[in-house]
Design a protein around this nucleic acid. Structure first.
Lengths: 201, 201
DNA sequence: ATATGATTTAACCATGTGGTCAAAATTAAT
DNA sequence: ATTAATTTTGACCACATGGTTAAATCATAT
């Protein structure tokens, strides 16, 4: 077996990622993916039986790259404030490298919920651990008591939202593309500040 | 001219809203809209020339209902902390009544940016005013100094995100639908708390 | 060199899709 | 009641779309 097969498969996956992420499942065209990959449309069906299967492959890969890093930080051996600092900086950095992923996931989530649910395979994040740490540190007076499901969602919301609502925000605050890039980068420290100030007793 | 025309037009708009919001532009089918409205597909084209035009009509209406309330609060004569309290409660309440709108807008924004840009017509929100108020109250020591584009985005992020990422959050924290509803409601006070604690000097 | 299996392609196919049109049905005007 | 205008419909069209197939090309082993 030559590696050409694997190679083509990867070409297809790369092309499919790009098109699906940009257009969503419904907006993506098999022909567009084939063109992007520089191959015949029939080859798509040779490697992946259907559009759905191809999408699943792409989505799995994308989703797989999204959660583990998160999980890793959350379960790290760090004081909560350090953990938050580290998490936000890493997460926003990841988003800066893949700015269209969040909108893609949200789009899939909401227009094809069934398609998503098959892929959810337990994000693997254990909020109990997080809550435990919050409780412990609260007792020590390091942070104020709080529910993990609010703290975590607050943080992630602030990280992700500027990526999915970019056109609106950019319009309201009249930023050009360069300015918005700087804005996104500045949010790393800004979010950390904002959160730490809030959870300090 | 009878009002029957207007009536049918509204029927169509209502049906179109439902289908577009649920499926997005690309996923929506004219036939599905016609069925939902209980009319013939050709009637859609009689009242609105094309799918695009129909979508525009829907999107205009949806967008029109989204910003003005926001603008109103932001320009109100209230101290910042009161303003935030009022804004968050009102905004989350609005979202609870239209839980699928944010995902719909984000979807449109990201998969059909051009379609959106024609509708953007200046959200009308003037961030300068907000910044001015922040600066003034910061001098008075009522709140800490901060950039409006971070404060406002932080707040709106936390309000909206749980509506667009619902399946993920619900999965991670293992909530059922009722629990999630309560969670969303509880966020009204939770977000206010979180923000006020953060901006207090 | 040649047979064998994997890979790639061009040409097709069935169906779905947005959109059109002429005729029917309904409403309004005389 | 008759005409004219508006609204609604069923049938239809051109084209796009996901998918198939048989043949061609390529690689590999003998």
């Amino acid at each position: 077996m030559t590696i050409a097969g694997e190679n083509t498969e990867n070409q297809i996956l790369t092309a499919a990622s790009q098109v699906f992420i940009l257009k969503g499942f419904d907006g993506a065209r098999m022909q567009a993916i084939a063109d992007q990959a520089g191959i015949n449309k029939a080859l798509l069906h040779y490697y992946f039986r259907s559009k759905e299967k191809l999408f699943d492959a792409v989505f799995s890969e994308v989703a797989a790259n999204l959660f583990p890093a998160m999980k890793q930080v959350i379960e790290a051996e760090l004081e909560m404030k350090e953990k938050i600092t580290f998490f936000v900086k890493m997460y926003v950095k990841t988003l800066l490298e893949n700015p269209f992923i969040p909108a893609f996931v949200i789009n899939t989530l909401n227009t094809n919920p069934n398609r998503f649910l098959t892929h959810i395979k337990k994000a693997g994040i254990n909020p109990m651990l997080l809550q435990k740490q919050i409780d412990e540190e609260a007792v020590l007076g390091l942070i104020r008591p709080m529910k993990a499901e609010h703290l975590l969602v607050n943080i992630i919301s602030m990280c992700i939202f500027p990526f999915v609502a970019r056109p609106i925000i950019q319009n309201i605050f009249e930023m050009n593309n360069d300015e918005y890039q700087l804005y996104l980068e500045s949010r790393q420290t800004e979010i950390v500040d904002f959160v730490l100030k809030s959870i300090t007793v």
